[in-house]
Simulated scan of single mutants.
Amino acid sequence: MAADAYARLADTLERLADVVAPNDLAEVLDIEDLSYRTGILRNDVIVLIKGEQVEQRSVTDRVRHRLAFLRTTRRREDGRGYSVQDFATLAGVTRQTMTSWCTTGIPSIEGADQIRRHFGLPAGFMTADEPEALNEALLTELHRLETQNGPLVMPPELRRLALRSPAVAEKTMQLIAAWAMEITSAADTAGDEAQAKEQS
């Protein structure tokens, strides 16, 4: 399962790199925001973006960590941090029960879901492993960047080929785009002619 999550993350990182090229991902992505949205420590986000792996945690460790992370990173309307009692109230349990959840990392499903919903977090926030959680956040970022930048002129594979040499990337891209247009135009013309013959 973890290998699949890392493979999906690698694919998303590659797609993001294509969209932001020639910039570096670390220059474009907001590491602090990714950490805030995923519950992953800032340093682990950096390691994962570099394509490396982080220490794998058990589900209970992830839940315990994410509960503590929420308490330290979120603020109440009055600007103060959330106490154990505040979380207990959100989850509809006693302070003692919440303390137990924070210690054991084993909250009730309903309680964890109420806390997650209060903060507007995705369904798997409490239990997702680090590569899975980061991948979900990066897919949102990828969609935003693709929408902002408009559709790519050419497929990512051709774009990667063109960007291998930054000194000639623009000229190479123009040549490849022209070549691709010539091939697709010839294929379109041939297809139109074949369709006209079938109709007659």
Rank of each mutant, 00 (worst) to 15 (best):
M1L: 09
A5P: 01
A5L: 01
A5F: 01
A7C: 04
L9D: 00
A10R: 13
D11W: 00
T12C: 15
L13P: 01
E14C: 04
A17P: 02
V20N: 06
A26H: 12
A26I: 15
L29N: 02
L29E: 00
D30T: 04
E32W: 04
S35N: 10
I40Q: 06
D44A: 04
D44C: 01
V45T: 09
I46D: 10
I49Y: 01
G51A: 15
V54S: 08
E55I: 05
R57N: 11
R57P: 03
R62D: 02
V63G: 12
V63K: 09
H65Y: 09
H65T: 14
H65A: 09
A68Q: 12
R74S: 04
R75V: 13
R76G: 06
E77K: 08
D78T: 11
D78I: 03
G79W: 07
R80Y: 08
G81V: 13
Y82P: 00
S83Y: 07
Q85V: 07
A88P: 01
A88I: 03
T89D: 02
Q96A: 13
W101L: 10
G105L: 04
S108K: 12
I109K: 14
E110H: 07
G111S: 11
D113R: 08
D113Y: 03
D113N: 11
D113P: 05
I115F: 00
R116H: 06
F119N: 12
L121F: 02
L121R: 06
F125G: 00
P131L: 00
A133G: 07
N135G: 07
N135S: 12
L138C: 08
L139T: 11
T140V: 14
E141P: 06
L142G: 05
H143K: 10
E146H: 01
P156C: 13
E157R: 13
R160L: 07
R160W: 07
L161F: 11
A167T: 15
A169L: 08
A180I: 13
I183G: 09
T184Q: 10
A187L: 09
D192W: 13
